[in-house]
């Protein structure tokens, strides 16, 4: 409109000014809203899913040498607004009076995930689903399980005499 008056030089026309301003403002809005939007969308991928904790499983004094001690605990997982609780269980087997000489098995059968039970008459862990059989050392004695029972390898006895295992969600 009025830019005919000032001939030449570095003046930009009103039209170009509007174009550039629109571009800049649009770009700023795009970045200010766009980048957070991407972060918003990908947020779950940035969160660490693994949760770990020391979990008390029973009084150490109650666990007798050579006799499997059954325990169970529940973990609550929070996914967004949803809470799911899962049960876990296992057996403590003290091999001698030495308080660190023990193995702690996860009672989840390594075949398809059923819970094994200790059968004193058979001196074995029997899985009710497909008759998987594990010895007191966790080794497979029979049935379909592909590998020995999983173990909780990190454990400690607190000053109050409570046995705790280190649990890590995978």
């Amino acid at each position: 409109m009025s830019d005919e008056g000032h001939t030449g030089h570095n003046e930009i026309s009103r039209r170009d000014f509007i174009k550039v301003t629109t571009g800049i403002v649009g770009g700023v809005i795009g970045v200010v809203v766009g980048l957070p939007a991407i972060a918003y969308l990908l947020d779950p991928a940035f969160k660490s899913g693994a949760k770990e904790a020391w979990i008390p499983i029973g009084k150490f004094a109650d666990m007798q040498v050579g006799k499997p001690y059954a325990f169970s605990f529940t973990r609550v997982q929070v996914n967004g607004w949803e809470r799911t609780s899962t049960s876990h269980g296992g057996f403590v087997i003290r091999k001698s009076d030495n308080p660190t000489d023990m193995v702690i098995f996860n009672s989840r059968c390594t075949h398809l995930g059923c819970t094994v039970n200790w059968r004193a008459d058979a001196q074995a862990f029997i899985c009710p689903c497909h008759d998987g059989k594990f010895g007191m050392d966790g080794k497979v004695l029979g049935g379909p399980p592909p590998r020995p029972l999983d173990q909780y390898t990190d454990f400690r006895v607190t000053q109050d005499g409570v046995l705790e295992i280190y649990y890590k969600e995978s």
């Binding site: 809203v33 918003y40 947020d43």
Partner: peptide, 9 residues
Amino acid sequence: NGVAFGWLI
């Protein structure tokens, strides 16, 4: 409260 920039969106 739980999602990055959820409050903004």
